[in-house]
């Protein structure tokens, strides 16, 4: 497979401040690639470099096999872009604005604008300036998808969308991938895109912390479990679970005739299931793995190494602390 987007030591500085620092990324064609990171991590800068809105300080970026500057308008016709800060104004209606964008972009199929707008629940007859933030975001999505570009570059596409529309949007992403389109999107929360993304890169302070496929993240996933067993089994259960290295945060609480245990299981669930099998289990809840928490743990570890290269590798405790610090910032 060829790469839809490929960067090599891509660096962008604004004055002395590096917005991107030697970023190496590869996005396979026909995949959905997510870039996750807090605000100011460099996600928007990365996308602007892909579209030749910004030029690299050093390093290189190739989009659909071409240098963005050399590729020029012809290359950008094959890209659909949703900017992170979409500011649409004017008395023009959504439909007229889309007609204009279709003119300066790749050709759109007749009726494509209405079909996509219908899916997202957007009224194209209204003037752009009267649209709410969420509806402007929908209009931005329509113009990005309009000409069925080979590459979609979407900066924070889910921001401002309500949950139902988010689901519809994720369905559009899956269809785009099935149709052979490549999607490069960013978010500051992984949970919004984990269903749709094949691979994710974690970006922080202009550096790629980790690139991973969502499936691998799932392997390292953190699951919260709740377990009810008959009263009296507590000491034995505690001993059994304490023996498992990937079970942490164990706590017990007494209910009427039973004992409720709560814990966090990191990674493989199988040892835990085997360990509890011999107890009289009355109830068991395993929460959907929270990939974001997994990523934040990775974050903490890697960033610890990056920011304090002189320190020895951190213990898991250190990693936890790093993750928590970041998430409260």
């Amino acid at each position: 497979m060829t790469a839809a987007v490929e960067t090599a030591a891509l660096t962008k500085r604004f004055g002395a401040r590096p917005a991107l620092d030697a970023v190496d990324l590869q996005v396979e064609e026909g995949t959905v690639f997510g870039v996750i990171g807090p605000n100011g991590a460099g996600k928007t800068t990365l996308m602007r470099l892909m579209l030749d809105i910004l030029r690299p300080t050093s390093g290189s970026v190739r989009v659909l096999g071409e240098d963005p500057r050399a590729g020029g308008p012809a290359l950008r016709r094959r890209i659909g872009f949703l900017p992170g800060e979409l500011r649409l104004e004017g008395r023009i209606t959504g439909r007229e604005l889309l007609r204009h964008f279709a003119e300066i972009s790749g050709p759109a199929e007749r009726g494509a604008a209405d079909a996509i707008a219908d899916r997202l629940g957007l009224d194209l007859g209204r003037q752009v300036r009267t649209l709410s933030k969420g509806n402007k975001q929908k209009l931005g999505l329509v113009q990005a998808f309009l000409h069925r570009p080979r590459l979609l570059v979407l900066d924070e596409p889910t921001s401002g969308l309500d949950p139902l529309v988010q689901q519809e949007f994720l369905a559009m992403l899956r269809e785009a991938r099935q149709g052979g389109q490549t999607v490069f999107l960013s978010s500051h929360v992984l949970s919004e895109i984990q269903q749709a993304a094949d691979r994710v890169a974690i970006l922080r302070a202009g550096r790629v912390v980790v690139v991973s496929d969502v499936e691998s993240l799932r392997q390292t996933a953190v699951r919260r479990i709740r377990l009810d067993v008959a009263a009296g089994a507590e000491p034995e259960l505690r001993a059994a679970l304490d023996a498992l290295p990937n079970v942490t945060g164990l706590s017990f609480g007494a209910e009427d005739h039973r004992v409720r245990a709560a814990a966090t299981v990191e990674g493989a669930i199988d040892p835990f299931v085997k360990a509890i099998a011999r107890f009289p289990v009355q109830d068991l809840t395993v929460e959907e793995p929270d990939l974001e928490e997994s990523v934040l743990r990775l974050y903490g570890e890697r960033m610890g190494d990056v920011e304090h290269p002189a320190h020895p590798p951190r213990s898991r405790h250190g990693a936890h602390r790093g993750a928590r610090e970041r998430s409260t910032r």
Partner: peptide
């Protein structure tokens, strides 16, 4: 400054145009 140029230039037009 109002951000519209970015979106225009992300389409198939050159800066000279």
């Amino acid at each position: 400054e109002n951000g519209a140029l970015e979106l225009t230039l992300a389409h198939g037009v050159s800066r000279r145009q």
